[in-house]
Design a protein around this nucleic acid. Structure first.
Lengths: 139, 139
DNA sequence: CTTGAATTGTTATATTATTACATAATGTAA
DNA sequence: TTACATTATGTAATAATATAACAATTCAAG
């Protein structure tokens, strides 16, 4: 087991530490973005008791591209692509706050075009599209 | 002067209240985004002494589209277009943090195309492009 | 003038995030 | 292996950002 783990490190990010795994797991199983202190509350049972333990795990996961921060909501969401550490795009429902990550492939061509046309030399981008989600439209 | 002022209210947003004007003025004369508490510090001399006075002015100005919040920096910047209350786009230097608002016209066509192509029904957007600004490139 | 909406002032408090410091685990090169 | 650097941990304290609650005031519309 141990040897398997270390062998696959890079591919599967099994190199995550205990705290990082716990936090990532919570986010991956959440249907909505979570706030740091709400994560903390949820993980008190797992032995995480200080904000810093959460923030440190979040920082690392974000750098790895495994999660993203929705800045306008001070919330964190698991990456639904494949570890996009640099470019992100979300839709955010203006009514209920529901957030979805847009698939890289859907956008990247269009965004690249946009960038070229405007002669911008971009190292990274974050796009937030505000919408009315299906649920909220019908209500 | 006074009569001119009241006559042009709507066009020039002279209807702003005292606090709102003071805060907007500070932001318009700033070369960089400012944080709420730094605004508070700067305006202690003008009689503004509580965070809430600042936040309330900022909220109002943001709704009017006269300023924007850079969420990832918890900072505020005066609008450099004409009161774009809904759609915003910025470049943010990854090195020095320098922020510039992109002109609406530069982007809007391209963004609209992008939205159409992806069949999104967007009510509003905020685009953050991270760059290396000229200064930081050469250093 | 008077009524209702918006704005203000003030205190207290909630929420989000980091500093500082001591310790332990892990990786790596001699 | 030892030794050294790097990374992660735990904990307490505190900084930075933002809002709640309430009383008082301003100010335009009827």
């Amino acid at each position: 087991m141990a040897s398997l783990k270390s062998h696959n490190k890079k591919e599967q990010d099994l190199s995550l530490t205990k705290n990082q795994k716990i936090v990532l797991n919570l986010l991956q199983n959440s249907s909505e973005p979570l706030k740091a202190y709400s994560i903390l509350d949820s993980l008190k049972t797992e032995g995480l008791k200080s904000p810093l333990q959460i923030y440190r795990a979040l920082d690392k996961l974000e750098k790895l591209g495994k999660i993203h921060k929705i800045e306008s909501k001070n919330s964190f969401i698991a990456c639904s692509n494949s570890n996009c550490a640099r470019n992100t795009a979300f839709t955010i429902c203006e009514s209920c706050g529901n957030v979805k990550e847009l698939k890289n492939n859907y956008l990247s061509d269009g965004v690249n075009e946009l960038i070229k046309k405007n002669k911008m030399s971009i190292t990274r981008y974050n796009l937030e599209f505000y919408v009315l989600c299906k649920n909220c439209k019908t209500n």
